[in-house]
Design a protein around this nucleic acid. Structure first.
Length: 283
DNA sequence: ATGAATGTTAGCTA
DNA sequence: ATAGCTAACATTCA
């Protein structure tokens, strides 16, 4: 899914748009995406929206919650009375609202509607008891400490010390540390001047510290920019984030390194994922 | 026009 | 235990 900053941006908007509203109708058009019984959530009021790593949780007033993972291309888009300034619907909403890529539609009281769109249909929306989220979601039960939250420099250092994986692959392992995905892992490694292929347990203490700070820096910047609308990510108001205009290395193959070192950004494949780095600055 | 890549993760094999 | 591949799926880019 979009990474921590994208899901955080979705959370912040949904809190404004749908908290306090009642779910009056749920239309599931693609059953594989919706896990559980929709009757459990009908006629409930939305109490709060929470986020764990890249997972969104919608708490309802009957002790049930919706656990939402948008994976690569899921989109949550709100239309209704709480949408003040009407932003034009992003062209990244392929098929539009209610079109061929809309798989779940939540109708709210007062005329609000929340659409779940997902081109690749990898996302999942699960009904779970609020106090048993970890029992019902294998992903949540395995989730590691989270950046910008309960992750600390010491925990981070300890995780790296115990792993001989390539540092970039480790950064994206949500069971070890939660929040970073491909965009922010690439950018953080460039910022900390660390080669993505290096084994985690050989990094020096100063490098580990720089990397930890770099990760939190890029995640914070991502949140500030409203997330990265590189592929399919849009905010619930239908608009786009801005971080894609500020990426440090991600998506910048053959473009000049932003350190003005004169080198061009290279792209390789690491752990099956596109990996961008500067061969000079991250040697 | 074929093949490969895309912000993710689960499940399988070794 | 862990690492590495593949699949889930649709679209876009080379």
């Amino acid at each position: 899914m979009p990474e921590l900053p994208e899901v955080e941006s979705i959370k912040l908007q949904l809190q404004k748009f749908i908290v306090g509203h009642k779910l009056t109708e749920v239309e599931v058009r693609w059953p594989k995406i919706f896990i559980g019984d929709k009757r459990e959530i009908l006629d409930t009021k939305i109490l709060d929206i929470r986020r764990f790593g890249k997972v969104l949780v919608v708490d309802l007033d009957n002790d049930f919650s919706l656990v939402i993972q948008i994976k690569l291309t899921g989109q949550l888009i709100y239309r209704g009375p709480n949408l003040q300034k009407a932003r034009n619907l992003s062209e990244k909403v392929l098929g539009g609202l209610g079109g061929k890529h809309t798989h779940v539609i939540f109708k709210l009281d007062k005329g609000g509607i929340l659409y779940y769109n997902d081109v690749r249909k990898f996302g999942r929306i699960m009904v779970a008891k609020t106090d048993k989220l970890k029992d019902e979601s294998k992903f949540l039960s395995k989730l590691g400490a989270e950046f910008l939250s309960d992750m600390t420099k010491d925990k981070f250092s300890e995780i790296l010390r115990k792993s001989s994986q390539a540092i970039k692959v480790l950064l994206m392992d949500q069971t070890k540390m939660a929040g970073a995905g491909n965009i922010y892992a690439n950018d953080a490694l460039w910022l900390a001047k660390i080669n993505p292929k290096r084994k985690a347990n050989i990094l020096k203490g100063s490098e580990v510290e720089n990397l930890f700070n770099a990760i939190e820096d890029v995640l914070r910047k991502g949140i500030k920019k409203g997330g990265a609308s590189e592929l399919a990510y849009v905010t619930p108001d239908g608009g786009e984030g801005k971080y894609q205009e500020h990426t440090l290395v991600y998506g910048r193959e053959n473009e000049p390194c932003k350190n003005n070192c004169g080198e061009k950004i290279k792209k390789i494949r690491l752990g099956g994922r596109g990996t961008y780095f500067c061969p000079v600055c991250q040697s």
